[in-house]
Design a protein around this nucleic acid. Structure first.
Length: 474
RNA sequence: GUCCCUAUCGUCUAGCGGCCUAGGAUAUCGCCCUUUCACGGCGAAGACACGGGUUCGACUCCCGUUGGGGAUACCA
């Protein structure tokens, strides 16, 4: 069979009319993974035939989203709009062969037909008025659309790679419009022609296209073209099971990036939403390419669960290198606190990451938690921290610092910890309390990584600066 | 209205007729670890929507019901 030796070619075909929706991102991911898995090609086509709704900004957003996710397309981006002449040529061919016809019904007529069909319980709305009528009967001034003369009898069967056998009676399908009255092609015509011309072998797309596929199959048939294989993946729903909309949180990939989600976490999450590989949860991109198959795509829709995304995100934060993380939080910090970070700051942050990584769910958290390391003095002390900085405890701080210098304690986590243990024992203070005092003085907060690690990261000089009483409003 | 798809713990899912007293992840709760908060470790609770078949045997196959989603545009 030639099928088996044909190179896999998939495509992602977004319309540039809005953000990159997580569902679309997943569709792109699946197409990409499938192509990579088979050593094939993954193409990007922009469905911009709707000139009114397509915008360059939306295109930018989509492209940015895809590259953030690391989904790189092969070849150059194809604009569907630019293929319009080709689409018209095909429509003309169908016209010439008597497989399509001019329809002079006005939008108002059509609306009436739809209303009527609904009342009568008819499956299709267009009444085929112009199917067998000559253009000479056309009303003056009405520009015609071109409609496909669809099969009216029999059934059309689709063997979908995800949904399995699906059948529909041809009587359910109406004569769809191929060319609008202004001569522009509709989506139905355009997809078929483009997928054919691009030699697409596998069309992986959202479930919402499943019934459309039967219409498209009619066009393939009329043209005598070989059809690609179809895989209709279920849609992603909102947390409450209804359509995933803005009230559920961000519906754009960019929104999650801004929230401090790492691209690896996002792709891992999206991958596991509807696809599985046994009990595996943490899946790297390479592993995904190796394992990905259409067979393991689930048939039912999944709900978008931000909590699980967050847990995956904290995993990838923990796994990331300190340098990578600091690079990621640097712009966040600089923007929020309007301070440009020095090389020394960056250095401190990198050292501090070890203890910070485990404590963040997002890069935003991470940045926030890291801020105290590089914040200008005097520090800002939160309410809880201030409670630990009363007269008595400050006194014990002073004594501790003296103790450290008298005993020439090495400024490292381990020896500072050991020293503190001896110190609290000697002075009959609770370690619980004392460590919080240290923390409050050093970080301005009651929550931080191990305070002795903080001291080590800060270094002796910076730590002592922070212990300086003038810097602590008691 | 008509047509199509779908249905396992709260959520994501494993399961492709006996391995299931249904497994994992996440969330929740408890215990441990502990200088705070996390991380981590251990444990608990938690699901086959319902009703009919088919079968020696159904979570798994078939048919209904119900719930959810989609399509029905001169949008894509």
């Amino acid at each position: 069979m030639t099928d088996s030796i044909q190179k896999v070619r998939t495509r992602f075909a977004p319309s540039p009319t809005g953000d990159l929706h997580p569902g679309s991102a997943r569709t792109a991911l699946f197409n990409w993974l499938f192509a990579r898995h088979h050593g094939g090609e993954y193409l990007l086509r922009i469905e911009d035939t709707d000139r009114k709704r397509s915008t360059p900004e939306a295109l930018d957003t989509i492209l940015n989203g895809l590259s953030w996710l690391g989904i790189e397309h092969d070849g150059s981006i194809i604009s569907q709009f630019k293929q319009a002449d080709r689409h018209r040529e095909i429509a003309q061919k169908l016209l010439d062969e008597g497989k399509a016809y001019y329809c002079y019904s006005s939008p108002e007529d059509l609306q009436k037909m739809r209303d009527l069909a609904k009342i009568k319980g008819h499956p299709i709305s267009y009444d085929n008025h112009w199917r067998n009528r000559d253009s000479s009967e056309a009303p003056h001034g009405q520009k015609p659309t071109v409609r496909l003369k669809s099969q009216q009898k029999g059934i059309t069967t689709l063997v979908d790679l995800v949904q399995g056998h699906v059948e529909i009676k041809n009587a359910q399908l109406d004569d769809m419009i191929l060319l609008r009255s202004d001569g522009t092609p509709t989506y139905m015509l355009a997809v078929v022609v483009d997928d054919h011309d691009m030699n697409i072998t596998h069309v992986i797309r959202g479930d919402d296209h499943l019934t459309n596929t039967f219409r498209q199959l009619q066009i393939y048939k009329a043209l005598g073209w070989k059809t690609p294989q179809f895989a209709h993946i279920p849609l992603i729903h909102g947390p409450d099971g209804t359509k995933f909309s803005k009230r559920h949180g961000s519906t754009s990939v960019g929104g999650y990036a801004n929230m401090g989600i790492m691209p690896k976490a996002m792709t891992n999450y999206l991958l596991r939403l509807g696809w599985s590989h046994g009990d595996d949860e943490i899946i790297s991109t390479n592993q995904a390419i190796e394992w990905f198959n259409i067979n393991s795509i689930g048939k039912s829709p999944a709900r978008f669960d931000i909590v699980k995304l967050l847990s995956l995100n904290s995993h990838y934060i923990r796994e990331a290198s300190s340098i990578e993380l600091v690079q990621a939080i640097k712009p966040i910090l600089e923007k929020k606190h309007k301070k440009s970070l020095s090389e020394k700051d960056i250095d401190t942050l990198i050292k501090g990451m070890t203890g910070l990584k485990d404590r963040a769910k997002t890069l935003l958290d991470l940045a926030e938690n890291a801020w105290f390391y590089v914040a200008p003095l005097p520090l800002w002390y939160d309410e809880k921290a201030q409670k630990f900085l009363q007269k008595e405890s400050i006194e014990s701080l002073k004594i501790f610092i003296l103790y450290l210098s008298e005993n020439n304690i090495l400024w490292s986590h381990d020896s500072l910890l050991a020293a503190a243990r001896i110190f609290v024992e000697k002075n009959n203070i609770k370690m619980r309390y004392f460590s919080q005092t240290l923390r409050a003085a050093l970080t301005g907060s009651t929550v931080s990584p191990s305070i002795f690690e903080v001291m080590e990261v800060l270094g002796k000089e910076l730590s002592l600066q922070r212990f300086n009483l003038e810097n602590i409003p008691a």
